[in-house]
């Protein structure tokens, strides 16, 4: 297969498109950042891409609830094209505000198919405050998700005001049974966070940080892998550097987050 093209949306307050594009480039993808209005004007661009990314940000300032207004804009103008895109064995990744958008679009978990209706919610953090902090995540080894293949644990940051995952008991049961939960917040010791702050930074039910659809090709996640792709982005890198130096080890260039992007690109190679 040829080198894939990753399309990253921007506009209306999306703000993580550049570093996310950089992560995909470092992972071997071609990338194109596109303003949502340009995509509405030239929908064919979707046909050329293999990966579609809804990057993090503050689309429409979170007015009326995070991700809602941008989801409305897409539903009103691009929904059919996105459904056609998914049908082509492609990948979609939503990070942070992007997760909120694809949740409101009903692209994840899409238990009832792509109806355009949200089936789960990302509510205000239990602390009712924006939280920017580093978290530990355990990958659900039984998940079929493309993005998390071969990963056990990752250490990357979250930064959001509305990341508190909520689903009705019935939907939650289905998510768990179908293994659509891809990441959970854990304590540094590896034990479940059990909704304990700050390990679970927002109060998410079942410590859920990320979910995917049934095909495993569409994933939404609250934490930011692109902010933890390099060793020197880590919150503990000066400590690790000193440790590795004394152990005579080489300093790594990359860190945990990059694996998500590499998995996506390798799907097409």
């Amino acid at each position: 297969m040829a080198i894939p093209l990753t399309l990253l949306l921007t506009g209306y307050g999306i703000n993580c498109e550049e570093e996310t594009a950089f992560a995909f480039q470092k992972s071997g993808s071609r990338t194109k950042i596109i303003h949502i209005n340009d995509l509405i004007e030239d929908r064919k661009l979707l046909n050329e891409a293999q990966i579609l990314v809804f990057p993090g940000g503050f689309s429409y300032g979170d007015d009326t609830g995070s991700g809602k207004a941008l989801a409305n804009r897409i539903k009103n103008n691009l929904f059919d094209e996105i459904i056609n895109f998914v049908a082509r064995d492609t990948l979609i990744l939503g990070i942070c505000n992007g997760f909120q958008v694809i949740t409101n679009l009903g692209l994840v978990p899409a238990l009832c198919g792509f109806t355009g209706m949200a089936e789960v919610a990302l509510e205000h953090n239990k602390t009712f405050r924006y939280q920017c902090r580093w978290v530990d995540l355990e990958i659900n080894s039984k998940s079929q998700c493309i993005f998390t293949k071969g990963i056990n644990r990752i250490h990357i940051p979250v930064a959001h005001g509305e990341g508190n995952f909520f689903a009705t008991p019935k939907v939650l049961q289905q998510l768990e049974e179908l293994n659509l939960v891809t990441m959970r917040y854990i304590k540094p010791s590896g034990e479940p966070a059990n909704q304990e702050f700050p390990f679970n930074p927002n109060g998410s039910v079942n410590d859920i940080a990320s979910i995917c659809d049934k095909t495993g090709r569409i994933m939404g996640m609250m934490p930011h892998p692109e902010r933890g792709m390099f060793f020197t982005q880590r919150d503990d890198w000066t400590y690790l550097k000193e440790k590795y130096k004394r152990e005579g080890k080489e300093l790594p260039e990359y860190s945990d987050g990059i694996a998500i992007f590499k998995n996506a690109v390798e799907y097409f190679l």
């Binding site: 950089f22 405050r129 920017c132 902090r133 982005q233 503990d236 000066t238 400590y239």
Partner: peptide, 21 residues
């Protein structure tokens, strides 16, 4: 204050407002 101000966006953070474990 430090944790409610996003200091990681743009991926450019090297040494943080809150340091050490």
């Amino acid at each position: 204050i430090s944790t409610q101000y996003d200091h990681e966006v743009q991926g450019n953070s090297v040494t943080k407002p809150l340091q050490g474990r």
